[in-house]
Simulated scan of single mutants.
Amino acid sequence: MADEAVPFDDRGFAYGDGLFETVLVRDGQPLLWGAHLRRLARGAERLEIPLPDAQTLASLPGQAGAGLYVLKLLVTRGSGGRGYASPESPAPRLRWRCMPFTPQSTHWRDGVRVRLCRLRLGQQPLLAGIKHLNRLENVMARREWCDADIAEGVLCDQHDRLVEATSMNLVWQRHGTLETPDLTACGVEGTLLAALRERLPIATRATGIEALMEADAAWVINSVQGVWPLRQLDDADGNCLKRWAVDTVHRHLQHHAHPLLGYPHDAFDEA
């Protein structure tokens, strides 16, 4: 079903008992579709939720028209069960919507300012990596600022180790090596990050904010917005911790990532 009413007793609505994917669709063709389906399948296996049949899922991107769209699909466990107890034979519920989309191309060119969040992510390895519906930590982190010049918030775990941004993954270059946080205990493994790791040597690091302070370049990335270079990192009180000049070093990741999404990858080389 498309964007129809969800019953009051739907477990996704009541408990966040479900999964979602947000997919960039260009002229009816989904980008990184295989990676999205694989992550959805991993999440379904973890939560033990049966997925809709492959033909139904494959038909969804075609609902978008010509141009650039974002497809958001949600799969919940459906209704039933008593309290937190799951129904013995769940009947999953699929909802989806296609929305026209315009990327923020100035962020590709000029880079973005980000801030550290006060909120610390809790660790739950069973839920790490997947895109489950319970995103309350991310919602609370995003409520920490209203300054329009702040594009994203950087999240650490309870041990002050870097994890992700509120809706994007983190990548940085330090001592000539591309690095990204360890996501085995918490955080979402983005599909663009997964695709880049198949093409580039990106090392996993369990590290704190010192990695960004030592970085020659840093980025926030996802499969809808693409790659935003970081130009400034602030602490949670708005004090500048680090500035980067957005230059050819920052363009390196865009060169590899943006063709996967149909975005420009060489328009800003002289920046």
Rank of each mutant, 00 (worst) to 15 (best):
G80W: 04
G80T: 12
G81C: 04
G81A: 09
G81D: 08
R82M: 05
R82C: 13
G83D: 08
G83L: 04
G83N: 09
G83P: 06
S86Q: 13
P87G: 09
S89Q: 10
S89P: 02
A91G: 05
P92F: 10
P92K: 11
P92T: 08
R93P: 01
R95H: 10
R95M: 00
W96M: 01
W96L: 02
W96R: 03
P100Q: 02
F101N: 02
T102P: 01
P103G: 13
Q104L: 14
H107V: 09
R109W: 03
G111N: 03
R113F: 10
R113N: 09
R115M: 14
R115P: 05
R115W: 06
L116Y: 08
L116A: 13
R118D: 10
L119F: 07
R120D: 10
G122M: 08
P125E: 11
K131D: 14
H132Q: 14
H132E: 14
L133D: 08
N134A: 14
R135A: 10
L136Q: 15
N138D: 11
V139R: 08
M140R: 08
A141H: 02
E144F: 11
W145Y: 11
W145P: 00
C146S: 15
A151S: 12
A151V: 14
A151K: 01
G153R: 01
L155N: 09
L155A: 09
C156P: 02
C156L: 03
C156T: 01
H159E: 15
R161V: 00
R161E: 06
L162E: 15
L162Y: 04
V163M: 07
V163L: 04
E164P: 05
A165Y: 01
T166P: 01
T166F: 04
S167W: 01
S167I: 09
M168C: 12
M168I: 07
M168K: 10
N169W: 03
V171N: 04
V171F: 12
W172L: 07
Q173V: 08
Q173G: 06
R174Q: 14
R174I: 06
H175N: 12
T177I: 13
L178N: 10
E179Q: 15
T180V: 10
T180A: 15
P181S: 06
P181Y: 02
D182Y: 03
